[in-house]
Design a protein around this nucleic acid. Structure first.
Lengths: 338, 338
DNA sequence: TTGAAAGCGATACCAG
DNA sequence: CTGGTATCGCTTTCAA
C-alpha cells in the first residue's frame, strides 16, 4: 500500500548518466575537494535536471545527522514583535541555506515544544523567545540538548542571547516627553520581574534623573502585555493626574488610551501617550500613537546568524543589545497644556 | 568530526532487554497485530524508559516515507485570522498525533514554500492559505504533488476546501446597521476579484435587497486588506455621505475610522462602523469596533481534520462554509442621528 | 512469540 | 578521477 509516487533517486540519476552513485553524489553536492572530469559532471547534472531529481532530505539527514533547518519558538504569533523577529530570522537563515521552522507555544509549554522541534522535526538549532520563568526555561533548554540562541531577553547561563536595548528606548521615549515640557510622566511597565520590564523601568528612571525630576512611585504601574492590563493600570494611575504616559508596549498603550477616552480626557491635550515598539497598530489607534521604533526584525536576523555560526563550529561572541530605532512622532504626544 | 552526542538507539534498547531490534520495534510501536509475551514486553518498555529512548524520526521517515507532520502555509503571521487558524490546526493535528509546521510567505512565493515544506521538511500534507491568483496557486499546488486542503477561499479544481461563510457574515453585519435605521450604508470591500471579497459584497447586497434599499455603486469601494486601503477608500466614500460603513476587515475598518476622525466626523453619532472578524484589535480602536465574529480557529481545526482523514485514505466529503459567529456589539454602531 | 535480514536513499571512506 | 561498499536507525517481511 504505497501512497508515495516513486520519486527520482540518486541511483536513477547515476544510472542515467552511466556513473556510480558515489560519483553522482559528489557532483550534485558540489564537493569542493575532489576534481571530476568536466564532461561526466555535465552529464550527471543533465540527467539530474531532466529527471527532476530532488535529494531525499530524510535520507541525507539520517546519514549526516544534520537537517539544515533552524527552529524558532515564540510565545505568540499575532504579535508584531515576534512576527518581525521571525521575518528577520527567516531571511538570515535562507541566505545561509537554512530553512526555518516556526512554532509557537503558550507559557509553560516551552519544554514540549523544544522537544518536538529538536527531536521530532529535527532542527539543527533553536531560536527561543519565551515568557517563562528563568529557572524553567533554563532546565527546558538543558534537557533538549540542542544548540540554541535566546531571543529578546537575558537568561543567566545561556551562552548566546540577542536583546534589544529597551533601556535606551525607554530613555528616549521619556526624554521626548520631558522635552515637550512634561514633568508628571507615568510609566506603564511590563511583566513584573521580566527582563525587558526592568530595563524599560531603568530607562524611565534614567531620563527622570537626568532631568532632575523626582521619582514618584504612584506614577508607575505594572500593566503586563495585555490591553486589559493597560486598562487597569491606567485606571489606578488616573488619581495621580499624570500629563503624559510612557507605555512599555503598544497593547498596554492602547489599553491606557481606552481608559483615557472613557474618562473624557483628550489625547494629547490632556494627556500625552507614547509607546515602545513601532508597528502597524500604532497607526490604527486614535489618535495615532507616537512610538520609539525597535529593530525587532534585525534581532531575528542577528540571532539566526549567531546560531548558524555556532552550528558551523565557530565561537561567535555575544552581541551587544541592539540600539533602538527612531522616535516616530504621531498625534498622541504634545506639550502639556498649562 | 561527529558533533551529535550519541543518542540512544533502538539497538541499545534491544541489547539492554536481551531481544532483537525487530522485537523491540514491535512493542515500542504498539504493534496491534502481533502478540508478544507480557514479560519481554515489560522488559523492553523498561529498558526504553531507563535509557530514555527516543526514536529517530529521520530513520523512521526514511523507512516509512511518512512524517506525521502537517504543514501550514499562510500569507502573513501577524494577522489574527491566520494565527487563529494556526491555533485551530495545531490543536486538531496534535490530537491526532501529528505535529504542525508553520510557514509564511509573501504573495508570489507560495510555490517555493510549498516545495520547501513538502520536499525539504517532508510534511505528509499541506494546509494552504494564499492570496495568490487562482491560476498560479493551482499550478503551484499541482507541481508539489502532495495532499492538501485549501483554507479560507474557494479554488476551482481543489478537492478539499474550508471556508467561512463570509456572505452570511456580511449579511448579518449589514442587517445590524439596517436594523438600527441606516439606509445609506457604505461597504469597504476586500481585494477586488478575491473570493471572500465577492462573498461579502453579495451578503451586503442581499441585506440591502431584503430591506428594499436601492443599490448605489457610489457607496462601494475596494479597500483591500490594509490600513491605507481603508483610508483611501473611505476618502472616496465621504462625498456620498454614508451614515454607516460595513468594512470587510478590521484593518480596513481602522483605516476608515482614521479618515472619519480626520474629517471631524464622530463615530458613531455621524457615522457608524462595523467590521467583519472579531479580534483583540477591535477593542483597541476608538471607539471600540462592533464586529461579526468569525470561526477562524474552527476553520483551522476542520481543515486539519480533513487533511488527516485524507492522509489515512478515507475519502472525506467537503464541508459546508462555516457559519459566522455572534454579532459583537461595541461602541462604533448606533442609530443614525436624523 | 521471536529472530534474521533486506532495504529506505543518501554520504563518505577506501581502493583502484 | 571514479567505483565499491559500509553505514545512518528504523520497519517489515519471512522463517523458525
Amino acid at each position: 500500500m504505497t501512497r508515495a509516487s516513486a520519486r527520482t533517486t540518486l541511483a536513477d540519476v547515476a544510472r542515467a548518466a552511466g556513473v556510480d552513485v558515489s560519483t553522482a553524489s559528489r557532483v550534485l553536492r558540489g564537493e569542493a575537494t575532489q576534481r571530476i572530469r568536466e564532461d561526466t559532471k555535465t552529464r550527471i547534472l543533465q540527467s539530474a535536471e531532466t529527471l527532476r531529481y530532488r535529494p531525499n532530505s530524510m535520507a541525507r539527514a539520517l546519514r549526516t545527522s544534520t537537517t539544515s533547518t533552524l527552529g524558532i519558538i515564540v510565545p505568540q504569533l499575532d504579535n508584531p514583535v515576534f512576527s518581525a523577529a521571525i521575518r528577520g530570522a527567516e531571511s538570515a537563515a535562507s541566505a545561509e541555506g537554512y530553512s526555518l521552522l516556526i512554532s509557537h507555544r503558550a507559557p509553560g509549554q516551552t519544554a514540549s515544544t523544544i522537544t518536538n522541534l529538536s527531536q521530532i522535526n529535527r532542527v539543527d538549532g533553536l531560536l527561543v523567545a519565551s515568557l517563562d520563568d528563568d529557572e524553567i526555561l533554563r532546565s527546558d533548554l538543558k534537557a533538549a540538548d540542542v544548540p540554541y540562541v535566546v531571543l529578546n531577553r537575558m537568561l543567566g547561563g545561556a551562552p548566546l542571547t540577542v536583546v534589544l536595548d529597551s533601556r535606551a528606548a525607554a530613555l528616549r521615549a521619556t526624554d521626548h516627553l520631558i522635552g515637550l515640557g512634561h514633568r508628571r510622566i507615568a510609566h506603564l511597565s511590563g511583566r513584573a520581574g521580566g527582563f525587558n520590564a526592568g530595563e524599560r523601568l531603568s530607562g524611565y528612571k534614567d531620563a527622570l534623573r537626568a532631568a532632575g525630576i523626582d521619582w514618584d512611585d504612584r506614577l508607575v504601574r505594572a500593566a503586563g502585555y495585555t490591553f486589559e492590563g493597560g486598562r487597569s493600570a491606567m485606571k489606578e494611575l488616573l488619581p495621580s493626574a499624570p500629563t503624559a504616559v510612557m507605555a512599555a508596549t503598544l497593547v498596554s498603550a492602547a489599553g491606557a488610551m481606552s481608559v483615557l477616552h472613557d474618562s473624557g480626557l483628550t489625547i494629547p491635550d490632556d494627556v500625552s501617550v507614547i509607546g515602545l515598539h513601532d508597528a502597524a497598530v500604532a497607526e490604527m489607534l486614535y489618535p495615532a500613537l507616537s512610538t520609539v521604533a525597535m529593530p525587532t526584525e534585525e534581532m531575528g536576523r542577528v540571532a539566526a546568524d549567531l546560531l548558524i555560526r555556532l552550528l558551523r563550529g565557530e565561537n561567535p561572541d555575544n552581541v551587544a543589545a541592539l540600539p533602538p530605532g527612531e522616535l516616530v512622532l504621531r498625534a498622541s504626544t504634545a506639550p502639556p497644556t498649562v
